[in-house]
Amino acid sequence: MGIIETQGLTKRYGQVTALEGLDLVLDDGVTGLVGANGAGKSTLIKILLGLLGATQGTAQVLGHDIRAEGAKIRSLVGYMPEHDCLPPDVRAIDFVVHMARMSGLPPTAARERAADVLRHVGLAEERYRLMGGYSTGMKQRAKLAQALAHDPRLVFLDEPTNGLDPAARDDMLALVSKIGREFGISVLVTSHLLGELERVSDHVVVLDGGRLLRSSATTEFTSDTGLLLVEVLGEGDAQTAMGERLAAQGIACRPRGQLIEINAPGRADLHDLVRDTAVEVGVGLVRLAADHRRIEDVFREEAGHGPTV
């Protein structure tokens, strides 16, 4: 049985449909929930937490029904909302202890867990500072810490990388991946940036306008396209020189940005040939890699339009 299952889950606000007949079965591990803003990601999470009532349909989280056992679900699940949710005049350590207590941990355990999770998210020394003085990156970490404080079996992370600079974004994604793989806590993580989820999720669910566009393993999305990508460096226009020499040897290729895309399925000696050609042309071979499809390609093909990448 999956950790999250929905059957015909529908949510309407008057005329507006936020979710339409959603049927999902999600297993352990890290699941990415992708969709443009307004695709219904946050609405789905709030329904699964029992905070919003569904208009139609049913759902179970960790085997508990969302209508009848909301409190039980909320005790087993952690939630990191998208928006600001930290009181500025409280120290991170006090806040996380308090939130652990709210989830039912006894006082001593709450203090130990709070110190532990704050260390795991990378707020070891800063935990004694008031959260009002935190940078966006630190706030996101504190929000994550409170979601993990009670050692949930599942966490909902709503746009955890929102507002972060590239370095902090990488750190946050590494943390998300670690929560799913090392901590043994299942993760449902949302993002409107497809490339991010490709890196950390085992499974990706694509929502578009409240409808399920696709739900499948990340590997299916990012399967091998059979193309080979080559990057070379050298004097003058090394890319063109290399491409022309390859074409002269009967290899189908074309430029793709700074790369050369080679389409020669079934040639076993292709790697050797590319290497030897590079030596002949006198250019440095920087990259020689199989081309993988990216989630955004799938999304673009299936939806006919894509969110920002």
Partner: peptide, 12 residues
């Protein structure tokens, strides 16, 4: 502060 959503996402 928005902390209300953290409280309401807990059992109480």
């Amino acid at each position: 502060s928005g902390a209300i959503s953290l409280y309401l996402a807990r059992p109480l």
